[in-house]
């Protein structure tokens, strides 16, 4: 009964956790609004109420959803490509020391080079339309590669011995023994790479300015000193990022639970 009284909101989380989180968010929203009133300049700072109103006016337009869909589609394509390449390359690297040695500096560079440098470089090679695809691919690839390779390397040697004694074939060994060991690493990698790909992809759009994308609208808002628009698009980016991560995480967890529970 105590837990129910404290929880405030149903669903997951410890009793009181959600209530405390909402209170903290409400506190900062109130502080933001107060600061906006104190500054009293729509160009420098707008309050959350005005941002919400602007977002409300945006979401009822077809252009908003078309832009979100375009950005999401391109970044999603690059992300999926990065995940697929990361998986294949990790599998190859786990089998061959030469492949691993060859890939090590490449993956190191992909992780170390700033996103802005990649954006400018890639713009020399591809059109602005494909820029966010390539940048999302660059973001996802090394994360998935590193995590999956780590998962393969951490595979219990005792399980591999067991598979050898029982004469379990290579395909079944990969499907059952390696997959069951790698899945937690893969899940963590996808979750991390998704957020990074989305944010870096939007940053690439702001620099490359492909037509009718979230990045272009963000840039336009900055150029025309449309601060409410700038905030509204930023909130939209955050909301999409959080929703995507929740959706993919839940999807992966559900798939994992189904895989684990099958007879």
């Amino acid at each position: 009964m105590v837990g129910r009284r404290n929880s405030g909101i149903g669903g997951g989380g410890r009793p009181g956790t959600w209530g405390a989180r909402l209170l903290a968010v409400a506190f900062w929203l109130a502080a933001w609004q107060l600061l906006a009133w104190a500054v009293d300049s729509r160009i420098v700072l707008v309050g959350p109420l005005e941002v919400l109103a602007r977002l409300g006016s945006l979401v009822v337009t077809a252009g908003f959803w078309a832009s979100v869909a375009t950005s999401l589609g391109r970044i999603g394509l690059g992300f999926l490509g990065g995940v697929a390449c990361g998986l294949v390359l990790a599998a190859l690297a786990a089998r061959s020391r030469v492949v691993r040695a060859l890939l090590a500096p490449l993956m190191g560079a992909l992780k170390a080079v700033p996103v802005a440098s990649f954006v400018i470089l890639v713009l020399l090679w591809v059109s602005s339309r494909e820029l966010s695809v390539v940048i999302a691919w660059i973001m996802a690839l090394p994360i998935v590669y590193t995590n999956v390779l780590e998962g393969i390397e951490q595979t219990d040697a005792g399980l591999l011995e067991m598979a050898e004694v029982f004469g379990i074939g290579a395909l079944e060994r990969a499907r059952m023994v390696y997959l069951s060991q790698v899945l937690p690493y893969f899940r963590a990698a996808v979750s991390l790479a998704l957020g990074l790909s989305w944010k870096a992809g939007i940053a690439a759009e702001v620099i490359g300015l492909p037509d009718l994308t979230v990045g272009e609208h963000l840039y336009d808002a900055k150029v025309y000193l449309d601060t409410p628009g700038l905030f509204a698009w930023t909130v939209a980016i955050v909301v999409v990022s959080v929703a995507l991560e929740a959706l993919v995480s839940r999807g992966l967890d559900a798939a994992l639970a189904r895989w684990e529970a099958r007879p």
Binding site: D156, G158, L159, E161, M162, M176, V177, S180, L183, E260, A261, R262, P263
Partner: peptide
């Protein structure tokens, strides 16, 4: 035991 921990 050498079982796959996350399988039934």
């Amino acid at each position: 035991d050498r079982l796959l921990e996350n399988l039934t």
